[in-house]
Write a protein that binds this DNA or RNA. Sequence first.
DNA 1: CTTGCATTTGACCAACTGGTCAAAACAACG
DNA 2: CGTTGTTTTGACCAGTTGGTCAAATGCAAG
Lengths: 200, 200
Amino acid sequence: MIKPPTRIQQRNRAAILSAGLDVFSQFGFRGATLDLIADAAGLSKPNLLYYFPSKESIHTALLEQLLDTWLDPLKALDGTGDPIKEIMAYAQRKLAMSRDYPRESRLWANEILQGAPRIEDILKDDLKALVDEKAQIIKAWADDGKIADIDPHHLIFSIWAFTQHYADFDVQVRAVLGNKDPYDGASVFLDTLYAKLLQP
Amino acid sequence: MIKPPTRIQQRNRAAILSAGLDVFSQFGFRGATLDLIADAAGLSKPNLLYYFPSKESIHTALLEQLLDTWLDPLKALDGTGDPIKEIMAYAQRKLAMSRDYPRESRLWANEILQGAPRIEDILKDDLKALVDEKAQIIKAWADDGKIADIDPHHLIFSIWAFTQHYADFDVQVRAVLGNKDPYDGASVFLDTLYAKLLQP
DNA sequence: CTTGCATTTGACCAACTGGTCAAAACAACG
DNA sequence: CGTTGTTTTGACCAGTTGGTCAAATGCAAG
């Protein structure tokens, strides 16, 4: 029989996951240490291992939790909506994710940079399937002359690249802009960019 | 008096730097180990430390070597040339860098992801100065009505983001495209994107 | 207060880490 | 060949790493 988690369990598991997100997203899997995570979570190392059996298991839990959040904005792209509005709304949702979940974006980036050893299958199955499905919708719009005739896959890549850049390269963006908040400017630029690109 | 490096020194230093590039770009500074680098270079660990005094020194050497290569394409943007051609040529140079030097791109990405502790000053000084200078050129073009009126800084970010995406997220891009070469499609897309965006 | 379970901890371990060192092997040159 | 400087190596070290364990503490219900 399964027992419901106590308040302490909920609090500590959440603290560990948040600490793990901090550490893994900054140092990658190999560069992260249990000591760093335990310190950030305010627990002793053996105590941390009472809640998660291994370093790997914390990382896996984070990645699983991330996956849904990460794919949601694209899933919401609606083939029956107004083409240009749909794509631009998707791009804005993605940009908002970078602003609101920068650690998650960097965790993902780290994982891919390291060759995605732990999620390669997911990329090749789930992600590819989802992207292919949405790419077909976009292609249909292009064929109907409702948007400009561009390669749907590279369109999606360009949205990922541009929006995630503000989370993953945050330090660099802020260094160049002199610490001004980048997101207002980015949002305006994003609108201009895709409005012009998609115009049939 | 300075002695010229022997053939062996040249060969081994080059092998170490190449191995270091492999390992640092995949695992980040903390995740990289001297054993991994030594193995990849085909040397024993003490032998490796005969050529570089520390792990840090290998990393520093790589970063210094990278900096010039990395900023060159932007430096070559010429204020006296044809505006749209200049910007599009810059974007294509950047894309070619991702294709030809993916490890360097990932080394840079790793460094920024980790908060750029070792190059923050360079970003705030040299990089910011260079970008500001080129941004002013672009702004002048926009003011003269030679290109569309867009934010020059975010234009540059969009070029960085899109082109580097193909090196840094290589595994993901190939997983989604089913292992087709992405660069031809990316190059075409890049041309379309900026041609439409910059049109006054 | 006591019993039983959940939680926390200090001490510990083997493997790995960055780095040192003296001695050995090698290369070049007269 | 011998000598001299360069290159390579095995053995080693102290600190860190992921992880274990038995014992101690906290806590809630009867």
